Computed example of a mutant assay.
Amino acid sequence: MSFAVDESLQFPPNVTEYKIPLQYGTNYTITLRGLTTSGAKEVTTENIETDIGDPPLHMEKTIQDDILQLYPVLNLNGPIRSYEIIVFGGQDGNSTKECRTFKTTLYNFSWSPSRYTAAVLPVENLTEPRTFILGDNHHYNGFHNAPLIPNHNYAIYIRVTSRWKHVCLY
């Protein structure tokens, strides 16, 4: 869905700051022009793209052994494009920052990467809850869901990608 809202605000001379109430998953074009006693100044335009925002938390009790329960995320904060399952080997904690900056990486047989994308599932493939078996040795859209090493710690992330930005769930 797309729509435009045009709003114009004028401030008294003593206002030096104004906090714009931005919505998640929205693109903004902000145009500013100062008016002084000597006339109007040049127009300044700023484009702002906000993060999609955190989708509903649905990860509690969704991993049991190597089975991950996946739930569709509603398009409340922007149009969902895909779900990326990311495996971080040798980790116990939750690092959303690392997930946000992670570059999609293929698993490589010649060396065992500590971080890789096990699957990318287009939104059309997750219209209702489904299970996903971690390390099932299958390929999903060109990504290898490599077997997991027994007794090894892993952190599993699901990166929900919108058309604008992405967020991570742990």
Rank of each mutant, 00 (worst) to 15 (best):
A4C: 07
A4E: 15
A4T: 14
S8F: 08
S8P: 00
L9W: 09
V15W: 14
V15L: 12
V15C: 11
T16N: 12
E17Q: 15
K19I: 09
P21H: 03
Q23D: 14
Y24H: 11
G25Y: 11
G25Q: 11
T26N: 03
N27Q: 06
I30R: 04
T31C: 01
T31H: 02
R33T: 12
G34Y: 00
T36W: 08
K41I: 00
K41Y: 04
T44I: 12
E46L: 14
E46V: 13
I48E: 01
G53A: 03
G53W: 02
P56K: 15
H58K: 07
H58C: 03
E60P: 00
E60F: 06
I63T: 05
Q64C: 01
Q64E: 14
D65C: 01
D66I: 02
L68F: 04
L70K: 13
Y71K: 08
L74P: 00
L74T: 13
L76Y: 08
I80S: 07
R81E: 15
Y83D: 01
Y83N: 01
I85K: 01
V87F: 07
F88E: 12
F88K: 06
G90T: 04
G90E: 03
D92R: 08
T104A: 12
T104Q: 13
L106N: 10
N108G: 00
F109D: 14
S110E: 13
S110I: 04
W111M: 13
S112G: 06
P113S: 03
Y116T: 02
P122Y: 04
E124D: 15
L126W: 06
E128F: 15
P129K: 07
P129R: 06
P129A: 05
T131H: 03
I133Y: 01
I133D: 02
L134G: 04
L134I: 05
D136M: 08
H138K: 15
H139L: 07
H139W: 09
Y140F: 15
G142L: 04
P147H: 05
L148N: 05
L148C: 01
I149G: 00
A155C: 02
A155Q: 08
I156F: 10
R159K: 12
R159C: 03
T161M: 12
W164V: 09
K165V: 10
L169T: 05
